[in-house]
Simulated assay, not measured.
Amino acid sequence: MARTRNRLIAAARRSMLQRAELHRRLDVAKAELKPGALVDRGKYRLNAKVDDAAHAVRREFRNNRLPIALAAVAGVAWLLREPIKEHAPRLTRKIQDMANAITDRLHPADEPADEIYADDGETIEPVENDDEAVQ
């Protein structure tokens, strides 16, 4: 009879432990199904996916820098196509004017020749006016 009693006590103890474990699991399940916990789990999974995507983008950009940069520039140009169409003529005119000014400074058109020759081949010295400002 003592054995039966010990077995019943051990079975009762096991059932109490199992019941306590089931209650813990039920509490965990209740906590996981609360709206705040669902939102937190969704945020975590979304952040994990965003991090994975960011790593993939960085890896692809590292491997293909030039094509991606060209595509990005083309995309920005396409987005700004209307303002570019509007302002491009004025900008090109300004650039041409600046280029002409630079070439005029480098190669002045009205620069006098160092030596002037007469019809008979003699050299004529240029005459300086006293009223001209020194340049």
Results as ranks from 00 to 15, higher is better:
59 R>Q: 01
10 A>E: 04
44 Y>N: 08
102 I>C: 09
12 A>R: 13
99 A>G: 06
39 V>F: 10
13 R>E: 08
130 D>A: 09
32 E>A: 00
119 D>C: 11
48 A>E: 10
101 A>Q: 10
111 E>Y: 03
95 I>F: 00
64 N>Q: 03
6 N>Q: 06
132 E>L: 10
28 V>R: 13
122 E>W: 05
81 R>K: 13
90 R>E: 14
77 A>W: 01
105 R>P: 04
39 V>I: 07
8 L>H: 03
72 A>Q: 12
37 A>Q: 11
105 R>G: 07
7 R>C: 15
117 Y>L: 15
20 A>C: 05
131 D>S: 13
80 L>G: 15
130 D>H: 12
130 D>S: 15
24 R>K: 13
124 I>Q: 00
127 V>N: 04
48 A>H: 10
12 A>T: 14
43 K>I: 15
26 L>I: 02
86 E>I: 02
16 M>H: 10
91 L>S: 07
5 R>Q: 13
5 R>N: 15
129 N>D: 04
70 L>E: 15
45 R>D: 02
29 A>L: 11
46 L>Q: 05
72 A>F: 11
11 A>S: 07
55 H>C: 02
22 L>T: 13
38 L>C: 06
94 K>E: 02
122 E>H: 07
78 W>P: 07
135 Q>S: 13
125 E>C: 00
126 P>T: 02
39 V>C: 09
4 T>W: 07
98 M>Y: 04
26 L>A: 07
121 G>K: 05
47 N>S: 11
102 I>Q: 03
1 M>S: 12
55 H>M: 14
78 W>K: 12
13 R>D: 10
68 I>P: 06
64 N>P: 03
8 L>T: 14
14 R>H: 01
115 E>Q: 08
8 L>K: 12
72 A>L: 14
44 Y>S: 15
44 Y>I: 15
8 L>E: 13
69 A>N: 09
111 E>I: 01
109 A>V: 06
80 L>N: 06
38 L>K: 11
77 A>L: 06
122 E>L: 00
81 R>W: 13
27 D>Y: 04
4 T>I: 11
67 P>N: 08
9 I>E: 11
118 A>R: 14
37 A>K: 02
18 Q>K: 12
51 D>F: 03
35 P>L: 09
106 L>R: 00
71 A>S: 12
40 D>G: 07
100 N>K: 05
35 P>M: 05
84 I>D: 06
66 L>S: 12
22 L>R: 10
104 D>H: 03
12 A>E: 14
37 A>V: 09
111 E>G: 04
26 L>M: 10
101 A>D: 05
7 R>M: 14
98 M>K: 12
25 R>F: 02
111 E>M: 03
91 L>R: 09
90 R>H: 10
34 K>I: 07
26 L>N: 08
81 R>A: 14
19 R>C: 10
93 R>M: 11
19 R>Q: 06
